[in-house]
Design a protein around this nucleic acid. Sequence first.
DNA 1: AACTGGCACTTGATTCTACCGACTGCCAGT
DNA 2: ACTGGCAGTCGGTAGAATCAAGTGCCAGTT
Lengths: 363, 363
Amino acid sequence: MSTKTRGSKAPGGPAAGELDLRRAAILEAVVTEYVGTATPVGSAYVARTPGVNVSSATVRSDMVALERDGYLVQPHTSAGRIPTDKGYRFFVDHLAPAGVLGTPQRQRVKRFFDRVHGEMEEMLERASTLLSELTPYAAVVVSPSHGSSTVRSVQLVSLAPRLVLLVVVLSDGAVEKRTLELDEELSEEELGRLSTRLIQGLVGCDLDGAAELVPDAAGASSDFLASVGRALHEIARAEESDQVYLGGPSRLAEAFDAVETVRSVLSILEQQLVVVTLLRDVLDRGLSVAIGTEHGFEPLASCAVVVAPVSVGDNETGAVGLLGPTRMNYPQALAAAHVVSSELSERMNDAFGHHRGGDRGGH
Amino acid sequence: MSTKTRGSKAPGGPAAGELDLRRAAILEAVVTEYVGTATPVGSAYVARTPGVNVSSATVRSDMVALERDGYLVQPHTSAGRIPTDKGYRFFVDHLAPAGVLGTPQRQRVKRFFDRVHGEMEEMLERASTLLSELTPYAAVVVSPSHGSSTVRSVQLVSLAPRLVLLVVVLSDGAVEKRTLELDEELSEEELGRLSTRLIQGLVGCDLDGAAELVPDAAGASSDFLASVGRALHEIARAEESDQVYLGGPSRLAEAFDAVETVRSVLSILEQQLVVVTLLRDVLDRGLSVAIGTEHGFEPLASCAVVVAPVSVGDNETGAVGLLGPTRMNYPQALAAAHVVSSELSERMNDAFGHHRGGDRGGH
DNA sequence: AACTGGCACTTGATTCTACCGACTGCCAGT
DNA sequence: ACTGGCAGTCGGTAGAATCAAGTGCCAGTT
């Protein structure tokens, strides 16, 4: 068709990834500037950037190459360039400076984790807020799924005549409850006796197993026990659906300036299942960033997601994520997500007595 | 100064509230039309409205009066009129047609309440989503505060060596837990003995009382028991802070078209305490609607809030709310909020055995 | 061969003007 | 007490002119 097909001027020379060093520098300059200003970046600006010691004309010719190769686009002729998803991808893979959190933010994290008390649910909830405050993006925290936790305790507590609360404690510290309505009235003593029977029979089973065992364990069968079994099954199902915490939704309204975009992204975040799947998908593919269409989820094509796993014990089932525009400060987001995820993981492992190194101080 | 000072043409005639019947009709027409179209309403449209059988000229002269009295404003000369907060207020107090939910929505509510299972927290959470789906506004649900509930059961469950879970069941069915780390290792038997002692000693107390009683109840004192006491205090505090559930935040992005407004409203909804205070305030003043600045909360001056109480037992401490622009469909919002709130109240009373009439069917 | 300065050109944004249309306020007439 | 008619007021829109940013290309330099 036209001119030179292969664009790199010195294929053998020193390179960052696939790109000429200078072109990489140019791309980097475009990305960082565009992330900061949301304005297409022109060759003149890039030429002034330290690290690019050539004239704007030269930058321009490199820019056409970068555009030909799909790293940059022009919104229209005679505008500056903006990065494509591929451009951002190259940036995070090869150029992103080691993410450094500002010291004030570092402190904020430290204070947070020094102070957290209370239970996991609360910690995760508040961590999502923390994360959204460390960055200008919306945060998502998916609680580690309870995996195959076993029953640690079962108890029946009478709340009112013919109204009983079933409380189940699982080996991972989760507590679930279900109210049961009775047909017949049961005395406190009877409930107590049933409780101890159930405990003895069910401790150590997984939930579904426990549900099956109920009649055997109690040594009798009745409508009531059947409903206990049903409740256990229900709990088992509920345990599988991971909890999602959304932090700082208002950040989305800062990050996007089209109200319609805000609406559609928010409405997606309302579907918790989608969020979980999305994050898990990205993690499963071994990524920590999904840019634009990389996650294959149409409605979020204008978004980037930064994810970090939260592992408790051996399995990485939890996750923290940041959701923002593709025009995102990746180093910052990555740093924030990693700090919070690792700190969370540590906390949750601590809580289980799987103490690790023990040096919770510096690093 | 100028012409007639008293505006009403026939002060003795039949009136709706403070207003001439015709003027009331005009106001009503303006409100309903403006709510629907978000466009200033002109005299010509109003004159065509059934119920107003006068010419546009007459409507115009009434409109100047309505404007003089503060019910309407013109965004600029030669535009139609839009209602003021006072105008909306008059509308909801005197003109709002009995709120009628469309049958599909009615069905939605019915199905929802037929299907809900599981515990209060989940029900409230999902109710907030339901409410936001019944209307185009964001919904808020504040859980009834647990008031002065008493301890129903206390249990210590060992999770790992030196790691114990304290599970407390309250008389209203709430279950709270706290993990405790031990210095010394305690055997299962010892924990069991302590549990039963605690149960015997603390059942029936309120939480703070229970916290004080711990050493007495257990018949001994130790670091461990002290931490149990502390945990109980913590739980008591946590119980006081009511849970807030936010439904359909994306609806805010539909309701407002300035992204900055969306942001600021969202960021307010993130502060749960503020939301609780706001709703309670409105309810305490005996209102079910707060329009614009009526709630005295500056940042929400462009919003209206529709509230309905959720009462469990005798005290109305919970609430459901809808948050939208002052240009809101009040009849619809009121109807939706009332249905959900009363249905929720009923549910929660049922769950406590305070069965009422018993006719859960039609109505 | 690689780079640079210069220049013509393209094109979105901005400003200005003119104009249209939607309403109003007023008034004379019924 | 209402109404029809009419002049007057503005916002919104369309079109033309201008502006400024930034490009692509090319001839010239090192």
